[in-house]
Design a binder for these strands. Structure first.
Lengths: 238, 238
DNA sequence: CTTGTTTTCTGACGCCGTGTCAGCAAGAAC
DNA sequence: GTTCTTGCTGACACGGCGTCAGAAAACAAG
């Protein structure tokens, strides 16, 4: 069923992982080249045009070799999603778990979020597009979003208890903010040419701050100070 | 290319449209039975399982007859979307264009919105799922959402000018609220068994009111009065 | 370098859903 | 009934998917 295979580590002496790339098994490099090819393709094409044939043409290997590494194109997307997930949760943890001025933490998190999505944006877009077509991927994607909803909800409630955020039902607000983020990030960075990092960050940040900590706090954030009157041009065509 | 055909109206005297169903051309009834079959299917199955063969089996006609009416499954979805669109804009116009107490208007609109989606929910879900797979449908879906974003943005700005809503950047808030609505409606009513109408309406309404008109106005709405402390159970598993 | 073993890759195959087409059947008008 | 139009059908070719047996390459040991 699954294409995964438990690989016995090669028993010889040389493959001890000390010399990075060149010392990896062939299969690991091939697998990576498929993942790279997919991302490359998705920078300029919608997911619906990603056929295995096309993909393996980019990777320079025969079509059937694909199935040595992934059981289908959706499993590949899942792999890409997982790799993005790691990066995102790292930057998100700043606001979700950090200590200190919450507005500052939020700014750091959103800044990082924008950076990650700017660099690997198509993954988000393609996974969102592909999810409805495959039950497994759909579940992963839903879980990914829900993890975020849960974390944000918890953090809001925590800050409400601390008097930093006014009391209201946290979850629907968390969902609204997260869906908004997803929508903006996907549309601004999901394909080349990409939108402007700063304006996207400012737009997202402003909405979060004003929703959670109050309109007056918006001005205290760095971007608020820097570009208080900037109309986020990029949000026009979104 | 397109399956559409300009049909000359039958020249005889009887088909004057006075006697509803039985007086329609055969082709119109068949077309409708396909649309009905699709909706029926989508109540219990995800869009990805909707194959033409399956669909025409339900409709009781041969597979190839499908192409007399639609060029492909996405054009069918577009037809369903258009029919839903009409209903939705009717109820939405209440808040978007009505006069009087805005909170009351909003309540009427959300109430209607919930009703429409409760009755024809799978359309929303299926179109959202199918959109990434087809360029044309993707455009229609995007346009549908954007029409809403535009209308809501305009209405917010109008109410801001009238001093009913505090000043803030209207568009991102409009987008966030709309995406939240879409998410909730799709997940609660997109398939059987459906969520609870009242709790969904209350959840949506509360968020809109508190975001636009202020937390204190929530209590003045009918549902706010009726169920001030109800935890919207349905938003748990969303 | 040669040999034997394991890993990786390939071409050919069958499957399934799509969309088209020529021609058959059913319905309407007379 | 006959004629003409409209609606329907089965058969076909196409393209992408996933599998498999066996070829080729990578690797370790001698």
């Amino acid at each position: 069923m699954s294409a995964k295979k438990v690989k016995k580590p090669i028993q010889g002496s040389r493959r001890d992982g000390t010399d990075a790339v060149s010392q990896l098994r062939k299969s690991d490099r091939t697998r990576q080249s498929i993942l790279d090819g997919a991302l490359e393709f998705l920078w300029t094409h919608p997911f619906r045009d990603l056929t295995i044939k096309e993909l393996m043409l980019i990777a320079g290997i025969s079509r059937s070799a694909f199935y040595q590494y992934f059981s289908d194109v959706h499993e590949l997307m899942e792999a890409l999603l997982r790799s993005l997930e790691e990066d995102i949760f790292v930057v998100a943890s700043r606001w979700l778990e950090g200590e200190g001025d919450p507005v500052r933490l939020l700014e750091e998190t959103m800044s990082g979020l924008v950076s990650v999505c700017y660099k690997r944006g198509p993954i988000l877009r393609a996974v969102a597009d592909a999810a409805p077509m495959d039950e497994r991927l759909e579940k992963s994607w839903k879980a990914f979003l829900q993890d975020f909803d849960d974390a944000v909800t918890a953090r809001i409630e925590q800050h409400q208890a601390a008097g930093l955020i006014k009391p209201f039902e946290a979850r629907p607000v968390a969902i609204a903010l997260n869906r908004m983020d997803a929508y903006l990030l996907i549309h601004q960075f999901g394909r080349r040419p990409r939108g402007n990092r700063e304006s996207v960050k400012d737009a997202i940040l402003r909405l979060w701050i004003s929703t959670l900590y109050g309109e007056e706090k918006v001005a205290t954030s760095a971007s608020g100070r820097r570009a208080k009157r900037t109309k986020t041009s990029s949000s026009k065509n979104s």
